[in-house]
Design a protein around this nucleic acid. Structure first.
Lengths: 339, 339
DNA sequence: CTGTTAGCGCGTTCAG
DNA sequence: CTGAACGCGCTAACAG
């Protein structure tokens, strides 16, 4: 690969002049500029990022670390959102996946530090509280999580708002008797959405039957297994079965569809189903297509980068900032046939 | 951030000695070593990747570029496979997603060149032929694609083998009357699997009814829409409906489940379903869980990195290397009830 | 408008 | 076993 010196020599100018045309600095005489440019094109020259970084002491790189990718590819939307925004600033991204392994986390943090990342984004798979905050010697933005001893930037989905929107939609369609198959109860998302649901219900003088609130998973949080099918089967066998089920995520909703099939119930005719997450792989593929609430992961990625790269413009507060979750109306909810 | 010079000064040794303990070079007197190490730990020193790279002229970075992420998060497995292997070699990864935009592709290639990537992996969403080969001035491995004018390394899933395994499994279960809802016919994957199916059928003196081979998508390849539900409905209404349906991917299989529900057919009692891809989000969530064929994306990622980082060990041939697709037996296939 | 000089933080060379 | 000096490719600071 050729160097700036080569360009300068070939073009018969000084190194600095070559540098100037590359960086579009200062006024350069047009003929000089085009002569230098011609050499650059001919030699296929690209400035060395490493050398540039050494001189300017800015890496132009931000690190992205996730805890688990697991079954839910939640991080790809965040990555895309981040990339969109980074591209606009001419920056690049290093990614790391710790798989919840402390050893790997340390290694990757070292790697980030060696690359002198200008910022770091840490995302957890579930909206949760962190015990320790990863430290890469650069500004940090937390995605989908927060920490008590951490007064920096933190972006979380507005689970309360999303849960409220879902509940209101079902109520507006005429449902009065709702079932819930939730995520693990220890997750803030679960509690926030339940609280929102109870609020929406209370506004109409209704309440939630405790029997109709189930968890869609079994086992410890780190190794939980889907059990929504069984929960749904049980719920649908009851004489007072709900006319609609609110699900903790789209996978649960998928299992509810399967349970409905098994019970000979049509969606949405006999049973309305509401998902959460808007995993297109499921929500757009199911027939009838799934009405769900979209998690704003791409938007969170964009906001995180903006906060990192241009902090003045994004004055992050010390409390987690809630990013809106949008209701995606498709075909899995209809007015109830029995009141 | 402190530098090697700081370390040397604080420890009262020369820069070179400090450098030696960091890189574990040469014999150093133990007491000197531990004194230097103590300073390193105290100052939280990390060597500058940029400075190192400039000196050694090796970036330790490989680039990963994908064409579309779209609905199918196919690339996350590749990324994970690559990361596993890169970690073992102490290297890192830069990622880019072109969204099939030539402009973006050029920009990212420049970025890769500026970072002096030591290798590049290009992955396409579908197993396909490339018109032009992206060039980053470094060794290249193609994933999921190949090009006629390109005699370098290329890894593709063994669609023929996977299709054959799926067909054999259905035949071994006793199925004789098979339906197919495939990917777009222009894709090599489609043709390879169909050929494998015909071979397996021919081995038993059977053949495929042309009426029972449908495509699960409509519209042009770049913007195709799932239409497997309609195809399945049509197929299941036929008097000679198949006892099993082979699907081009797991999303198609999901729609076949939905169509079966609509027709009042139980899976696998009335209809066996075989997927392809093994998207866990779908295959492990469906009830009954989906029997499918796994695409070896993580393995392809690992192999690509190995070929790049240690070419001697992985002598890639000039023809695309086929990576085995494994049958994942779950619960969606059972012996047919009507012969 | 253009050129000269001096490092950025490392690893390498060669000399102790 | 250890140290001094040099240069990787580039840009900042300051001349001209």
């Amino acid at each position: 690969m050729s160097t700036l010196k080569d360009i300068a020599r070939e073009a018969g100018v000084s190194i600095k002049t070559a540098s100037r045309v590359i960086n579009g600095e200062a006024p350069i005489r047009p003929e000089t500029r085009s002569r230098v440019q011609a050499v650059i094109d001919r030699l296929g020259y690209e400035p060395s990022h490493a050398a540039r970084m050494m001189r300017t002491r800015r890496s132009g790189v931000v690190g992205f670390m996730t805890d688990v990718v697991a079954s839910t590819p939640y991080s790809v939307d965040m990555v895309r959102g981040m990339q969109d925004e980074l591209r606009a600033f001419g920056k690049t991204m290093l990614i790391a996946n710790t798989e919840r392994d402390a050893q790997r986390e340390r290694e990757f943090l070292r790697m980030f530090r060696q690359h002198r990342v200008e910022g770091m984004v840490f995302a957890s798979m579930f909206h949760r509280r962190l015990h320790t905050v990863p430290e890469a010697g650069a500004p940090l933005v937390l995605l989908n999580c927060y920490a008590d001893d951490w007064q920096g930037a933190s972006l979380v989905p507005d689970d309360h708002g999303g849960g409220y929107a879902a509940a209101r939609y079902l109520l507006d369609q005429g449902h009065r008797h709702l079932g819930v198959i939730s995520l693990n109860p220890v997750l803030p998302a679960t509690q926030l959405r339940l609280a929102a649901l109870r609020t929406a219900l209370a506004e109409r003088g209704l309440s939630l039957s405790p029997d109709l609130v189930q968890c869609g998973f079994v086992g410890p949080l780190e190794a939980e297994q889907l059990s929504a099918f069984e929960a749904a089967m049980e719920m649908l066998r009851r004489p007072d079965r709900p006319s609609a089920i609110l699900c903790g995520n789209d996978q649960i909703a998928l299992q509810v569809y399967c349970a409905a099939q098994d019970r000979g119930l049509q969606v949405p005719g006999d049973l309305s189903v509401m998902g959460f997450d808007d995993l297109k792989l499921i929500s757009e593929t199911l027939r009838p297509a799934l009405t769900t609430v979209a998690l704003p992961y791409a938007e969170m990625g964009r906001l995180a980068v903006r906060a990192l790269v241009d902090p003045s413009q994004a004055p992050m507060s010390t409390v987690p900032q809630r990013v809106p979750c949008l209701l995606r109306v498709r075909d899995s909810v209809a007015p109830p046939t029995r009141p």
